[in-house]
Simulated assay, not measured.
Amino acid sequence: MYLPGFDLKDKLAVVTGGTKGIGKAIAVSYAEAGADVIIIARSEDELLAVKETIEGLGRNCHIIQSDVKDYTYIKAEVEKITATRNLDIWVNNAGMNIRSEALEVSEEEWETIIQTNMKSAFFLSQFAAQKMKDGEQGKIINISSVGGHTALRTGVVYAMTKSALIQMTKNLALEWGKYNINVNAIGPWYFPTSLTEKLLQDEAYVSDILDRTPLKRIGNLSEIAGPAVFLASPASDYITGQTIFVDGGMTIYGF
C-alpha cells in the first residue's frame, strides 16, 4: 500500500506571525521538509533571525515586515515574490489575545482582536486562493484554538474569532474544493509561546491547565509542527474542512 510522503520539496509556503512560538516552529519545519518559506511579522530583527535559520537549512526565505492588519501591503509583496512560481501553502498563524472579562471589553480591544485574528485571515485566505486557483492546487491552514471549541474563562473576543476560523475553514473548504484547494485548521491548547509565557510561570495556573489535560503536560512546539507539515503535504490530500485539535485531549472534556 502506498503511503504518501510528507515531503514539501520545492513548495512555497507563507506563514504569518512566523517569527515566534507556533509560527516559527511551523516555518522552520516546512523548510526542514524542503519548502521555501515567506515569513510575515512585525519585528525586523526577529524576521532576520528566522530567515538565517531557514537559509541555514538550505532553503530560500523571504521576509515581509508588516502587521497582518495591513493585508493590502502583504498581498502586494507576496505578488512580487510569486510572479514566477506557484504559491502552494498559506498558514494564517498571526493572532493576539487581550484577556479581558466580558464586562470589561472595550470597542478598541474588540476591533484590534477581530481585525488581527479574523478579518486579516479571511482576506489573506481569499488572496491565497486566487493565487492557488491559477496553479490548480493549494493548502490553506488556519491556526484556531481550543477556545474556538470550548468556553474559556476570559478572552471572549479571542474565543469568538477562533470559533469563526473553524467555521470559515469549513465554508472555504466547501467553496474551494473544486479548485483542488484544501482548507483545514489546527486548534492548539497550551504551548510555550509569547502569548502564554507569563501564564506558564504561574504554578497554580499551570496546575489548573494540567487538571484539564488528559496527557497532563504542556505541548511541545514540535508536536504542532508535525500536524502542520501533514496538512501541507500530499499525505493530507483527501482531508479538507477539518480542525485538528492538538490539545493533549483537553477538548474531550468539553468544558
Rank of each mutant, 00 (worst) to 15 (best):
residue 67 D to L: 05
residue 94 A to D: 09
residue 107 E to T: 14
residue 146 V to D: 02
residue 195 L to Y: 03
residue 217 R to M: 11
residue 246 V to Y: 08
residue 92 N to S: 13
residue 143 I to L: 15
residue 142 N to M: 12
residue 138 G to S: 07
residue 26 I to D: 09
residue 35 A to Y: 12
residue 12 L to S: 03
residue 180 N to G: 02
residue 96 M to I: 14
residue 147 G to P: 07
residue 100 S to I: 01
residue 48 L to I: 14
residue 66 S to R: 04
residue 138 G to I: 00
residue 178 K to G: 13
residue 52 E to R: 14
residue 120 S to C: 09
residue 95 G to Y: 09
residue 33 A to E: 12
residue 232 A to E: 11
residue 16 T to R: 02
residue 59 R to Q: 14
residue 101 E to H: 14
residue 90 W to T: 04
residue 55 E to L: 04
residue 122 F to L: 10
residue 128 A to E: 00
residue 209 I to V: 15
residue 209 I to F: 14
residue 78 V to W: 08
residue 111 E to M: 06
residue 37 V to W: 00
residue 201 Q to C: 09
residue 60 N to I: 12
residue 195 L to E: 11
residue 197 E to T: 02
residue 107 E to H: 12
residue 3 L to C: 11
residue 7 D to G: 03
residue 102 A to M: 13
residue 232 A to H: 09
residue 77 E to G: 08
residue 30 Y to E: 02
residue 9 K to V: 03
residue 5 G to N: 08
residue 27 A to G: 06
residue 91 V to Q: 05
residue 166 I to N: 05
residue 255 F to C: 09
residue 171 N to V: 13
residue 237 D to R: 14
residue 194 S to E: 15
residue 121 A to P: 01
residue 69 K to M: 08
residue 147 G to S: 13
residue 178 K to I: 05
residue 164 A to G: 15
residue 3 L to P: 00
residue 117 N to Q: 07
residue 231 L to V: 09
residue 161 T to I: 05
residue 100 S to M: 11
residue 72 T to W: 01
residue 161 T to Q: 03
residue 3 L to S: 10
residue 184 N to M: 10
residue 172 L to W: 07
residue 12 L to T: 14
residue 40 I to N: 06
residue 189 W to D: 11
residue 186 I to A: 02
residue 36 D to Q: 10
residue 238 Y to G: 01
residue 222 S to P: 00
residue 206 V to Y: 02
residue 138 G to Q: 08
residue 150 T to C: 06
residue 164 A to N: 06
residue 81 I to K: 12
residue 233 S to H: 04
residue 15 V to P: 07
residue 254 G to A: 09
residue 83 A to E: 14
residue 165 L to Y: 07
residue 165 L to W: 05
residue 106 S to Q: 03
residue 239 I to S: 05
